[in-house]
Design a protein around this nucleic acid. Structure first.
Length: 862
RNA sequence: GCGGGCGUGGCGGAACGGCAGACGCGCUAGCUUGAGGGGCUAGUGUCCGAAUGGACGUGAGGGUUCAAAUCCCUCCGCCCGCACCA
C-alpha cells in the first residue's frame, strides 16, 4: 500500500483536469442548468482563509450538482479596479496595473492549487478593456433611460486623496478610510445613478426572495427606509407676523399630530434660514448653529446622544390645520437632505422635539394620548386646546386618541391611523397637503476622482455641454502610462484628455472621473454567461437561461451595497430589454439576479477576525503545503456550519488529516491490500473470534450503513450542512473499520467493493483529488471516467433499514427500558411488548394511554 | 431606541416536538518488543454509589403537550446591523 501523499496526488490530478478541460461547462448539454456563483475576489495580495471558505462551499455545491446530473456553470473572475491598487502602487513604486495583474496571477495559482472546479475559459477581469467596455456601454444605456444624472450635491471630500467618498467610506469621527484625513463637506457636481427610481421595487421585491436570509432582507429594507405620510403646506409670515404668499412644505409620518405642532424647524443649511435672518438680530444665532454643523460630517451629526441645539429666526409660519402662528427655529438635528429640510415640530409626540422644547422652553401641547394616560380623562372629547404642557418625562409616540384637535378629536391617532387619513383628506381638499412617501435611500454617487477605475464615457464641450461618447467609440481606454507615484492624473494625459466633441467636432475634453468599483461588480455575474460577446454586454437569451443564479455565496459585508446595487442593475437592464424577457424565470422578470443567497461566516483566530493588520492570519498556502488542499477543504467544511463563524484550530485540522488517512487505509484494506504504516508495519489486525454467522450479520449491518449514509449525505449537502455530512462519512468509515476486523476470507467481497466506492463517491465533492485518486487508481475505475462525472450513488431507503429495531420505552415521558421488535411489528404487538418491559414499574396499574411513535419509542402514560 | 440572531460537556458542534450531547478535538487507562502531531481497545455531562443502578441536566423562571434544547410568555446575558429619517 502506498501512503497517502496529498501533495503528489493533488499536483497530478490538477494537471489532468487542466489538460482535459474537466470543469468546462458544456453549453450544448441536455442536462438542466445550475448556476453556482461566488463573490469574486479583489486581487489585494494572495487568497486568504475567507476566500478559501467561500470558494470551498461553492465548489462542494458545484461538484455535488454535477454528480446529480446538472449542467453546472461555476465561474470565477476578479474585481480589479479600485483605490487599493493605487495605494499599493504608490507605496511600492509600481503601477496599479502591474500590482493588480501580478496579484491576479498569484491568486489564480492559489485557486487552482485548492482544486476549485472553475470553468477557467470564462474568467472575467473587470480592469480588462473587454469587460469595462461593456460597463461603459451600460452607463450610456442607463443615460438614455434617464437613470444617469450629473448634479450638484453636498458630498464628502477627502482633500488628501482628492476624491469624493461614499458615506460608507467615511469612518467613525469623519476620517477618510484610506488616509485618515478629516473629510470635508463640499458642494460638488457629481455623477449619480438614479437608484431611487427603483426604491419601491427594490423594497417590494424583497418579498420574492424566499431564498435569502431574513437578516439581509431586513438590512436592505432598513436601508431603503420607506416612510409613508403626507406633505403639509405651512404659510410663511413676514417680519411683522403677517402671512405672506410664500409657503414651506414639510413631510410628516404623523399628520394626526398636526394640532400639536408648537414650533417649526429648518435645517441649518436651508436657504431660508439665511434669507429670513439676514441683517436681523437673529442672524448671529442662526449662523452659530450653522457653523457648528458646518465642519461635521453627516455621520457625526447623526449621533443620537448629542444634545440638540438651535436658534430662533424671529419669524413665524401658519399651521394650516388651525391657523395658529408658530415660531420658526433653526436646529442641528434636522437634515437638509431628507424630506424638505424643514420639519413641523410636535414635542408631545416626538422625542427629539420634546427635548428641544424642554431645552428652549417651548410649549408641549398633548394631542394624541393613550387611553390609560393620566391626562386622558381630563382631555377626552376636548376640542379646543386648553392644556399646553404635559407632565411627561418623554414624548408619547404610540397609538392613542386624538384630543385638543378640533373636529378630529376622538379619532384614533398613530402611524397610518384613521386620524392621519382624516387629516390628510381635510388638507388635500383645501390644497394644503397630500399623501407622500419618503425614502432614506439616496441616489448612488458613482463618480470618483481617481485614476484606477472605469472611465466615465462622457465629453465636456464648451459649445454642446456634456455629451455622451458615441457607442461606436467605445471603449474609452484607460491609459496605462499614468505615473501615480508622481501624482499624475488622467487630466495630465493629453492623448486621453483632449478629444474632439462628437457632436460639433470642436476641441473638447474627456470626463476624467472614473466609476465607483461597485459599478463593475454589479453585473459581472451576467457577463459570466457570455464572456466573449463582442457586440453586447451579454446575449439576452443566454442570460435568460442561466439567471437568476441558483446559488450565490459570499460574505455578509456585502449585504447592502453590492447586493442592492446588483439588484438595481438587473432591474435597469431588464427595463433596457436586455434580460428577463418573456419566458424567462419569474424572478428574472422581476429583475432579481440571485435566487438563493448563502452568507458565510468569518474565519477567526482566538475570537478575532483574521486580518493582516492584526497579524493573526493563517495563510492557506502554509496549510496546503503541509496537509494538502483536500485536508484544508474538509476541515473548513467540518468545523462549523457555513453561515456561522469558524474558529481556527490546529488540532481540528490534524483530526481531518487522520480521518482522510483512515479512509485511505480502509479503502485499500477493503480491496484486499496489505495495509501498512509509514514504517511498513502491518496495521491490519483480525479478530479471530468472529464467527461466520457473526460476519454475515456484520455484512448486513455494513450494507445498511452504506445506504443510510448515502441518504444522509445527500440530505445534508442539499441543506448545506456539510459538517454533519462529513460526520456521517466518518460514521461510515468507523463501521467499515470495525468490519475490517473480520478475517479476510469471511468478508463479503462485493460488499467491500461497494463500501470502497461509496466512500470515494461521497467524499468527492469535498476532497476532490483524494476521491479521484481512490476512484481512478485504487479502485481502478479510470475507464469509467473521473469520479466527478459519476452519478451520485442511488439512495435506497429500504436497504437502510434493519429487520429488527430497538425502541425506547418511556413511562410518563422518561426512558425506563428498551425493547427490540421486528421492523414490521404491529402497533398492538409493540404496545404489549412495551408494557411487559415496564410491568414492574406500573405495578398492575392500567396505563391511561400508550403512544407509539413508529421506529422511535413508546410512551406509556400511567 | 429599532431590527435580526444566539445561549447545549473542557472545546468545535449534533439533535426537520420523540432516547440530549452524533461526529470530531482534548483528556484518562491499556496494548502496539522502548516514548511522543502514528495505529488499536476501553472510557470520558454532573452528582450519589464498590457495583447492578439512581437522581439531576440544554442561560433563569413560568406555560402548552403523553413528550420541550426545540413551541408560547417573562426575565438575564452575548453578538451583528441600523440609528436625531421628521
Amino acid at each position: 500500500m502506498q501512503q497517502y501523499d496529498p501533495l503528489a496526488i493533488e499536483e497530478h490530478w490538477q494537471e489532468v483536469w487542466e489538460t482535459t478541460d474537466a470543469n468546462r461547462m458544456t453549453e450544448s448539454d441536455e442536462k438542466p442548468p445550475f448556476y453556482v456563483l461566488e463573490m469574486f475576489p479583489y486581487p489585494s495580495g494572495d487568497v486568504h482563509m475567507g476566500h478559501v471558505r467561500n470558494y470551498t462551499i461553492g465548489d462542494v455545491i458545484s461538484r455535488y450538482k454535477r454528480m446529480q446530473g446538472f449542467n453546472v456553470l461555476h465561474p470565477i473572475g476578479w474585481d480589479s479596479f479600485g483605490m487599493p491598487a493605487e495605494n499599493a502602487a504608490i507605496q511600492q513604486n509600481s503601477s496599479p496595473a502591474t500590482w493588480t495583474y501580478t496579484n491576479i496571477e498569484r491568486q489564480r495559482t492559489s485557486l487552482k492549487r485548492m482544486g476549485f472546479s472553475y470553468d477557467w475559459s470564462r474568467v472575467v477581469i473587470t480592469s480588462d478593456p473587454e469587460y469595462y467596455h461593456w460597463g461603459q456601454w451600460i452607463f450610456l444605456k442607463f443615460w438614455e433611460m434617464g437613470l444617469v444624472e450629473r448634479r450638484s450635491s453636498p458630498v464628502n471630500w477627502c482633500p488628501s486623496c482628492s476624491t469624493v467618498l461614499a458615506n460608507e467610506q467615511v469612518l467613525g469621527e469623519g476620517h477618510c478610510w484610506r488616509c485618515k484625513t478629516k473629510v470635508e463637506k463640499r458642494e460638488l457636481e457629481q455623477w449619480f445613478f438614479k437608484i431611487t427610481n427603483y426604491a419601491d421595487e427594490l423594497l417590494d421585491d424583497l418579498d420574492e426572495l424566499s431564498g435569502w436570509p431574513e437578516r439581509v432582507k431586513q438590512m436592505q429594507a432598513n436601508w431603503i427606509g420607506r416612510s409613508v405620510g403626507a406633505d403639509v403646506v405651512f404659510t410663511l409670515c413676514d417680519e411683522n407676523g403677517e402671512p405672506t404668499e410664500e409657503t414651506i412644505t414639510v413631510f410628516t409620518t404623523r399628520p394626526d399630530t398636526l394640532f400639536g405642532c408648537s414650533f417649526f424647524l429648518l435645517a441649518p443649511e436651508h436657504p431660508l434660514a439665511h434669507q429670513l435672518t439676514a441683517g436681523t438680530q437673529y442672524e448671529a444665532g442662526v449662523k452659530a448653529v450653522r457653523a457648528a454643523v458646518e465642519n461635521e460630517t453627516t455621520i457625526e451629526r447623526e449621533k443620537a446622544e448629542r444634545e440638540k441645539s438651535g436658534a430662533f429666526t424671529g419669524r413665524f409660519v401658519v399651521n394650516p390645520i388651525n391657523n395658529e402662528k408658530v415660531p420658526v427655529w433653526v436646529c442641528d438635528y434636522v437634515l437638509m437632505d431628507y424630506g424638505t429640510g424643514a420639519v413641523m415640530a410636535v414635542p408631545s409626540g416626538d422625542q427629539r422635539d420634546f427635548e428641544f422644547a424642554r431645552k428652549y422652553g417651548l410649549p408641549i401641547p398633548p394631542v394624541v394620548v393613550a387611553k390609560d394616560d393620566a391626562l386622558y380623562p381630563e382631555l377626552a372629547n376636548v376640542q379646543e386646546r386648553t392644556v399646553n404642557e404635559v407632565p411627561w418625562t418623554e414624548a408619547y409616540a404610540g397609538a392613542g386618541i386624538m384630543v385638543q384637535s378640533g373636529e378630529f378629536t376622538g379619532l384614533a391617532g398613530g402611524k397610518d391611523s384613521p386620524g392621519s387619513a382624516a387629516v390628510i383628506d381635510w388638507l388635500a381638499a383645501r390644497n394644503l397637503g397630500e399623501p407622500s412617501i419618503n425614502y432614506r435611500l439616496r441616489d448612488w454617487l458613482i463618480s470618483r476622482q481617481r485614476y484606477w477605475g472605469n472611465p466615465i464615457p462622457a465629453i465636456h464641450c464648451d459649445a454642446c455641454g456634456i455629451v455622451p461618447v458615441p457607442y461606436e467609440d467605445l471603449p474609452v481606454i484607460l491609459p496605462l502610462d499614468i505615473d501615480v507615484t508622481a501624482g499624475q492624473k488622467l487630466a495630465d494625459n493629453k492623448e486621453f484628455y483632449e478629444v474632439a466633441c462628437p457632436v460639433c467636432a470642436r476641441p473638447a475634453h474627456r470626463e476624467t472621473d472614473t466609476m465607483d468599483t461597485f459599478t463593475c461588480s454589479s453585473w459581472y455575474y451576467l457577463r459570466y454567461t457570455d464572456p466573449l460577446n463582442r457586440t453586447l454586454p451579454f446575449d439576452p437569451q443566454t442570460v435568460d437561461t442561466w439567471l437568476p443564479a441558483d446559488q450565490y455565496i459570499g460574505g455578509i459585508e456585502h449585504a447592502i451595497l453590492h447586493l442592492l446595487y446588483s439588484r438595481f442593475f438587473t432591474k435597469g437592464l431588464r427595463d433596457a430589454g436586455l434580460l428577463g424577457g418573456k419566458g424567462a424565470p419569474d424572478l428574472l422578470q422581476h429583475g432579481e439576479p440571485f435566487k438563493n443567497l448563502l452568507t458565510q461566516g468569518m474565519v477567526k483566530l482566538n475570537g478575532e477576525v483574521m486580518s493582516k493588520s492584526k497579524g493573526n492570519v493563517v495563510a492557506p498556502e502554509s496549510i496546503v503545503g503541509r496537509y494538502g488542499a483536500d485536508t484544508l477543504r474538509v476541515y473548513i467544511l467540518f468545523m462549523a456550519p457555513p453561515d456561522k463563524d469558524l474558529e481556527w484550530s490546529q488540532e481540528g485540522l490534524d483530526g481531518i488529516w487522520r480521518f482522510l488517512n483512515r479512509i485511505w487505509r480502509s479503502v485499500h484494506d477493503l480491496l484486499g491490500e496489505r495495509v501498512v504504516d509509514a514504517e511498513n508495519n502491518v496495521l491490519s489486525i483480525y479478530d479471530e473470534s468472529i464467527t461466520p454467522a457473526a460476519a454475515a450479520e456484520r455484512s448486513k449491518e455494513l450494507n445498511r450503513e452504506i445506504h443510510r449514509v448515502i441518504g444522509k449525505v445527500k440530505d445534508d449537502v442539499e441543506r448545506f450542512n456539510f459538517n454533519t455530512a462529513i460526520a456521517a462519512i466518518m460514521e461510515l468509515t468507523n463501521t467499515v473499520s470495525s468490519y475490517l476486523k473480520i478475517a479476510r476470507e469471511l468478508r463479503d467481497e462485493q460488499l467491500c467493493t461497494r463500501a470502497a466506492e461509496a466512500l470515494a463517491l461521497l467524499i468527492a465533492p469535498m476532497a476532490p483529488h483524494f476521491a479521484e485518486e481512490l476512484w481512478c487508481k485504487v479502485l481502478g475505475r479510470s475507464e469509467q471516467g473521473s469520479v466527478h462525472r459519476q452519478p451520485w450513488p442511488e439512495f435506497d431507503p429500504a436497504q437502510a433499514l434493519a429487520d429488527m429495531i430497538e425502541l425506547a420505552v418511556q413511562v410518563n415521558g422518561k426512558v425506563k427500558a428498551r425493547i427490540t421488535v421486528a421492523l414490521d411489528a404491529t402497533e398492538a404487538d409493540i404496545k404489549t411488548e412495551a408494557c411487559g418491559a415496564v410491568a414492574e414499574l406500573s405495578q398492575g396499574v392500567e396505563p391511561k394511554k400508550v403512544i407509539v411513535v413508529k421506529g422511535k419509542l413508546v410512551n406509556i402514560v400511567l
